[in-house]
């Protein structure tokens, strides 16, 4: 009997494969739009922003809130142009950005390495787990003054706070990911006589990438927080310094400008990680991604 025997309604051998392949193609074509954004939802999002800005512009004035308490968007915009021209906004933003990048990269590398080491050696994790937990509970930003005392009014204490704050979510995610790799997958590799290194390279490492990226996303936003707190504590560099400077001047609009620029930097950092994630984890069905 050469002819494959089929059951049910499809007697031809390829009759079953065909509808499946069509379904697969349909799914592939459909995925790029499955994030759920449509022109309608985008328009609605923009509308929310417009309404918010209008309310911010008009309401405080109507209720009689003075401008030095809550400057309207128009005032914030003119202040933005002033800070840009007179207060070296881009210079400070650049320094903050570099600190964020340095802290993020170093903290993540440290988190990945230690996460894998502890993930692969349960004994070491058992020994270190009380201290890891203690450090994780300790408010990392509280270390900022200490680091400034140690390293002075330079960029280093800021980077150090960022490293410390970024390290934990990345390490914990990698650690848990390594632990939750399907043991049957490891058995499969072992049954092909895989070495320990191969099991790591071919199974454990790629399997922990999705949780690693989840950790990196959190880390991207935390890095901004770490750096800003470091800058608030001391020094004359970065957006955190501009923030305290504006505060000292009683310049509410300048504080707003700084907060907005910091938020924009945070968004770019997050988007960069999300973009990289989409590149690296392209094999994961898009439906599993969430918009936020």
């Amino acid at each position: 009997m050469e002819q494959p025997v089929e059951t049910g309604q499809s007697p031809r051998p390829d009759a079953r494969a065909e509808p499946q392949s069509v379904a697969v193609i349909a799914a592939t074509v459909a995925t790029p739009d499955e994030s759920g954004f449509t022109p309608g939802t985008i328009a609605a999002s923009v509308a929310v922003l417009v309404v918010f800005l209008a309310a911010w512009e008009l309401l405080p004035r109507a209720v009689g809130v003075p401008e030095f308490i809550l400057p309207p968007p128009s005032k914030v915009w003119s202040e933005f142009l002033r800070v840009l021209a007179n207060e070296r906004l881009l210079w400070h933003a650049g320094i903050t950005t570099l600190e964020i990048i340095a802290g993020f990269v170093l903290g993540c590398l440290l988190g990945v390495v230690i996460g894998f080491v502890l993930g692969l050696s349960p004994k070491a994790e058992l020994v270190l787990s009380p201290y890891i937990l203690a450090l994780q509970i300790a408010p990392k930003v509280a270390f900022a003054p200490l680091f400034v005392m140690w390293l002075g009014y330079t960029v280093y204490p800021k980077i150090l706070v960022a490293i410390l704050i970024v390290f934990f979510p990345v390490m914990v995610n990698v650690l848990t990911a390594v632990r939750t790799v399907d043991p049957d997958m490891v058995s499969l590799a072992r049954s092909f006589s895989a070495t320990r290194l191969q099991i790591f390279r071919l199974i454990e490492y790629p399997a922990s990438l999705p949780p690693l990226f989840a950790g990196l996303r959190i880390a991207a936003t935390l890095a901004v927080i770490g750096v800003v707190v470091g800058e608030l504590v001391g020094g004359n560099l970065g957006l955190g310094y501009l923030l305290t400077y504006g505060e000292g001047q009683g310049n509410t609009a300048m504080v707003f400008v700084t907060i907005i620029v910091l938020t924009l930097i945070g968004i770019v950092a997050y988007a960069a990680v999300a973009l990289l994630e989409r590149r690296v984890l392209h094999y994961i069905p898009k439906v599993q991604h969430v918009a936020v």
Binding site: D184, L188, S191, Y283
Partner: peptide, 12 residues
């Protein structure tokens, strides 16, 4: 070589 109920295909 062995084969299980789970296909154990590597998703990546």
């Amino acid at each position: 070589a062995f084969m299980l109920q789970k296909d154990l295909l590597l998703p990546w």
